[in-house]
Structures are given as structure tokens and as C-alpha cells.
Simulated scan of single mutants.
Amino acid sequence: MTGVPASATGGSGRPVPGGKLGAAAVDQASLWNIANILTMVRLLLVPGFVVLMLMDGGYDPVWRAWAWAAFAVAMITDVFDGHLARTYNLVTDFGKIADPIADKAIMGAALICLSYLGDLPWWVTAVILGRELGVTLLRFVVIRYGVIPASRGGKMKTLAQGTAVGMYILALTGGLATMRFWVMAVAVVLTVVTGLDYVRQAIVLRRRGLAAQRSSAAVEESAR
């Protein structure tokens, strides 16, 4: 079943010239595209990652290495599914919802596990997760006025967070353990700074949207 609307087939089940068969077919057939499958894999990795992280009390270097591998795969699929979706026009409603959930689920699981095991202060986890949830809610609040685009700072923040959390998952010692502290410090700073920038963008976007609405209302009023 293709789900092609009758308007696109002229009621005969066959595509008509100029119809929107292509777009409709893509929308209907794209749920199981490669981008969505990678997103699903990332979601399935979350419980597996948690199990690996907490095996044998959570401090066995071997299990931690396997947990790092699962986390790394999740981070890599995060890069590729978005790229594939944009490049090959595989963007779907499912992907729009599931992709950010998968991102926050794997990062949240890693941060909570690390704090639970005492490797990372709880306030760091609270700051990062609070920022991520806050920005997500902010996007929904102002979506009627427009979309807040991903910034370069946001991408740097994601890279810093992924690198820092990955280093904490591994059982590092000596100089590498000290290095991961500073990488996490950079990640926290970027998390706060980019979060504040999103708030600024949301305020500007809302003001512009309200101004446009008032201008449109004034034009309609004068035309009466």
C-alpha cells in the first residue's frame, strides 16, 4: 500500500503529470530508511550501554571498554543519520521526534551512570541535562514564530560533551584522567554559553514574530 492520495493519481491509481506522487511515496516509504534505522539502533543501544556500564559494580575496565564502544557507536550513528536524512531527503516525522530523543537518551544514560558510580559530580550531570531539556522545550515554545537553527557553538558543545563523556567512561588513569577533567570543563562551559545563546535567539525570534503579527494585523485593519 503506497498511501498515494487520489488527487495525485487522478482517482485511477496511476500517477498523473504534475502530481505529487514522488513526495507522497517518499513520505510513506521512508519510515524504514537507513537514517531512521540508525536512529532506532541508537535507541536500542541505550539499555545495552547501561547494562555494560554497571556490570560487576561498574568499575571493571573490560566492561567499561565495551560500554565505551556502545557509546561511540551511538555517537557515530548520530552524525551519520542526520547527514543521510538531509542529503538524501529522508527526513520523516518519526526521525524529527526520535532523533533528538535518542541523542538525549544515550547522553543522559551515560551522565547518570557516571554520577551514580561517583566518577562525575551530580551537578555536572544536572547542568548538561538541564540545558538539553531546557533548549528542547524552548524550541517548542517559539516554534510558532520560527525554528532556532543549530549553531556552530552547539556543534562544538556536542563534540566536547561526547569526547569528555567518552573519556570518563573509559577507566583512564594518570595524565589522561587529568586531561578528561579539563575536556569536561570545556564541555560544561560550552553547554552553559550555548544554552544562554539559545535563550537570546528565542527572545529575538519571538519579538520578531510578534512584530510581524502586529504588522499583518495592522495591514488587514487598514484594508477594511
Rank of each mutant, 00 (worst) to 15 (best):
V50M: 10
L114R: 13
M75A: 06
D103K: 08
L137W: 12
D119Q: 13
D93K: 06
I128C: 03
R152S: 06
W123Y: 08
W122E: 07
V186G: 03
V79H: 07
T39A: 11
I76R: 05
S30I: 00
T87L: 13
A6T: 10
A217I: 02
R64P: 01
W122L: 12
G22I: 15
A212D: 08
A110V: 10
A74E: 01
I112W: 08
R14I: 00
L137D: 12
L45H: 04
V192K: 00
L38A: 14
K155W: 09
L90H: 10
A98Y: 12
L54R: 10
V124Y: 04
G146P: 00
I76Y: 03
M1F: 13
A212E: 06
P149V: 03
G108Q: 08
A187R: 01
I112C: 07
A110Y: 11
L205V: 14
A187P: 02
R42V: 07
G10M: 04
M53Y: 15
T77P: 05
L129E: 02
V62R: 08
G11N: 08
V204F: 09
A211W: 09
V46Q: 09
Y88R: 14
N89D: 11
S12K: 10
G209Q: 12
S7T: 13
G19K: 07
L159D: 06
M40A: 15
A177D: 15
L38N: 10
V16M: 09
A218H: 10
A217E: 13
M55G: 11
R144T: 11
D93T: 03
L137K: 04
A72Y: 06
I169A: 00
L38R: 15
P15C: 12
G95W: 11
A212Y: 02
A67F: 00
G166I: 02
G130M: 07
L43A: 07
A69P: 00
